[in-house]
Measured scan of single mutants.
Amino acid sequence: MKVIFLQDVKGKGKKGEIKNVPDGYARNFLFKKGLAVEATPANLKELE
C-alpha cells in the first residue's frame, strides 16, 4: 500500500515521503498512530 508519511518514522520514511509499505503495517500501526495516510489522489493533491 502506498502511504504518505506525516511524521518521520525511524527506518521506514521521513515526513512528506511517499512509499510502499505492507498493508497490515499501514493499517495497524501507521494509520492508527497518525504517522501516515493512504496515498489517494485527494491526499496527494493536498501534499502539493
Results as ranks from 00 to 15, higher is better:
M1L: 14
M1V: 14
K2W: 15
K2Y: 15
K2F: 15
V3K: 01
V3W: 02
I4K: 05
I4M: 09
I4L: 11
I4D: 01
I4F: 08
I4P: 00
I4V: 08
I4S: 01
I4Q: 03
F5D: 00
F5E: 00
F5M: 04
F5A: 00
F5H: 00
L6V: 09
L6S: 03
L6A: 03
L6E: 01
Q7P: 00
Q7T: 12
D8A: 08
D8Y: 09
D8F: 09
D8Q: 05
V9N: 00
V9Q: 01
V9H: 02
V9D: 01
K10D: 13
K10T: 10
K10Q: 12
K10L: 13
G11M: 05
G11K: 05
G11P: 04
G11S: 06
G11Q: 05
K12Y: 15
K12T: 11
K12P: 01
K12I: 15
K14W: 09
K14D: 05
K14G: 05
K14Y: 12
K15V: 08
G16L: 05
G16D: 04
G16F: 10
G16P: 00
E17Q: 11
E17G: 02
E17A: 06
I18Q: 04
I18S: 03
I18D: 00
I18G: 01
K19W: 08
K19Y: 07
N20H: 14
N20M: 15
N20L: 15
N20V: 15
V21Q: 04
V21L: 06
V21W: 03
P22D: 12
P22Q: 08
P22S: 11
P22R: 09
P22V: 07
D23G: 13
D23E: 15
D23L: 15
G24D: 15
G24N: 13
G24T: 14
Y25S: 03
Y25P: 04
Y25R: 05
Y25M: 06
A26P: 01
A26R: 02
A26F: 12
A26L: 08
A26E: 07
R27M: 10
R27T: 09
R27Y: 10
R27V: 11
R27I: 13
R27A: 06
R27G: 02
R27Q: 09
N28L: 12
F29L: 07
F29D: 06
F29S: 04
F29E: 08
F29G: 03
F29M: 07
F29H: 10
F29K: 06
L30D: 00
L30Q: 01
L30K: 00
L30H: 00
L30I: 01
F31V: 06
F31W: 03
F31R: 01
K32Y: 08
K32G: 06
K32P: 15
K32E: 08
K32M: 12
K33A: 11
K33L: 15
G34I: 03
G34L: 08
G34V: 04
L35F: 10
L35V: 04
L35D: 01
L35T: 02
A36I: 06
V37Y: 06
V37L: 11
E38I: 08
A39Q: 03
T40G: 05
T40F: 06
T40H: 06
P41Y: 12
P41D: 13
P41G: 08
P41I: 13
P41M: 12
A42K: 12
A42T: 11
A42D: 13
A42H: 13
A42Q: 12
A42E: 14
N43I: 12
N43A: 12
N43G: 05
L44M: 11
L44Q: 07
L44R: 07
K45L: 13
K45M: 13
K45R: 14
K45W: 11
K45Y: 11
K45S: 10
E46Y: 15
E46W: 15
L47Y: 15
L47S: 07
L47V: 10
E48F: 13
E48P: 09
E48A: 14
E48I: 14
